[in-house]
Nucleic acid binder design. Structure first.
Length: 283
DNA sequence: ATCCTATCCTGTAGGC
DNA sequence: TGCCTACAGGATAGGA
């Protein structure tokens, strides 16, 4: 569910509302997420306050006082929810409950349990296996066509799957990959090595634009994603192809197609994203 | 190294 | 109403 814009939305909200708060109490559900949450995590973070909220790709990092960082990933269905007072109603699938010294609360809810939560030494964060291999974050360091073209050299993998590979670029997921390729006019099935330089230029440009616009609208709520306030993101209105199979392309009227790549849905316009439009490359 | 598949888990939507 | 299948924003291990 959450890709870069959704995680960035939550990061910004945490930076605005959670900084300086001291963790007074921690409760864990005991259920395993992507990996078991270590029993010792509670003792490791208790009493520390949140000093900074950072993000790389889809990973969120909360730096705590005393050199400990909470590293989290929302997986498919994870949510960080903040409550100034008491939560209204009963929530299920809440696996982590932080209560701050002032009584406010920060909960991690994750029905499918593909999420991740680790406490690591801040100085060793860079070496954490979850982060060490990640490609650059396209918001932190804007990427150009040259970057993409050089990383794609010789790769047979389809350009859609290339964009999803977090070790090449960090933060693009299934929704935005389809949106970026549509706006760049590139056929998602093309081998990365066969994408011409001028098409990579457009992909680079649209990556920054799409992700930026999505952040401005607090992300896309397709189903599960919610902001820190449990509200949906608004970028769904802007989607040009994702989940629009059989509907008319907003640019040319051709029916949007759904195909499966790497066991995941891809949506594209066969006309706007044809080979002719992205220019023929050598190879 | 690159690539492809299966797998982890629960909820929901749609067909019958 | 229930039952069944397919699918869902992700990442990773393991084999070719």
């Amino acid at each position: 569910m959450p890709e870069l814009p959704e995680v960035e939305t939550v990061r910004r909200m945490l930076a605005e509302h959670a900084l300086g708060r001291a963790i007074a109490e921690i409760r864990l559900s005991g259920k395993k997420l992507r990996e078991p949450i270590p029993r010792g995590l509670a003792a490791r973070v208790r009493g520390r306050s949140i000093e900074k909220a950072r993000r790389h790709g889809k990973y969120l990092m909360l730096d705590l006082s005393g050199g400990v960082t909470l590293l989290s990933h929302l997986g498919m269905s994870g949510r960080w929810l903040f409550y100034p007072g008491d939560p209204d109603g009963t929530l299920i699938h809440v696996h982590v409950k932080f209560t701050f010294a002032d009584g406010s609360k920060l909960w991690f809810q994750d029905p499918r349990r593909f999420g991740l939560l680790r406490a690591v030494d801040t100085t060793k964060l860079k070496d954490d296996p979850a982060l060490s291999l990640l490609g650059p974050d396209p918001l932190a360091s804007p990427l150009d066509g040259e970057f993409f073209a050089s990383r794609a050299k010789g790769l047979k993998v389809a350009v859609k799957n290339f964009l999803l590979d977090q070790n090449r670029v960090a933060g693009i997921g299934n929704i935005y990959a389809s949106e970026i390729l549509h706006r760049a006019g590139v056929d998602p099935r093309r081998p990365a090595r066969a994408v011409p330089k001028e098409a990579w230029d457009r992909i680079a440009k649209e990556t920054a634009l799409v992700l930026g616009e999505a952040v401005a609208r607090m992300g896309t709520t397709f189903s599960a994603y919610r902001t820190l306030w449990n509200e949906p993101g608004l970028y769904g209105d802007q989607l040009l192809v994702y989940d629009r199979a059989g509907e008319a392309c907003r640019r040319c009227g051709t029916l949007i197609r759904r195909i499966v790549q790497g066991q995941r849905s891809t949506f594209f316009c066969p006309h706007c994203q044809s080979r002719a439009r992205s220019k023929t490359a050598a190879v």
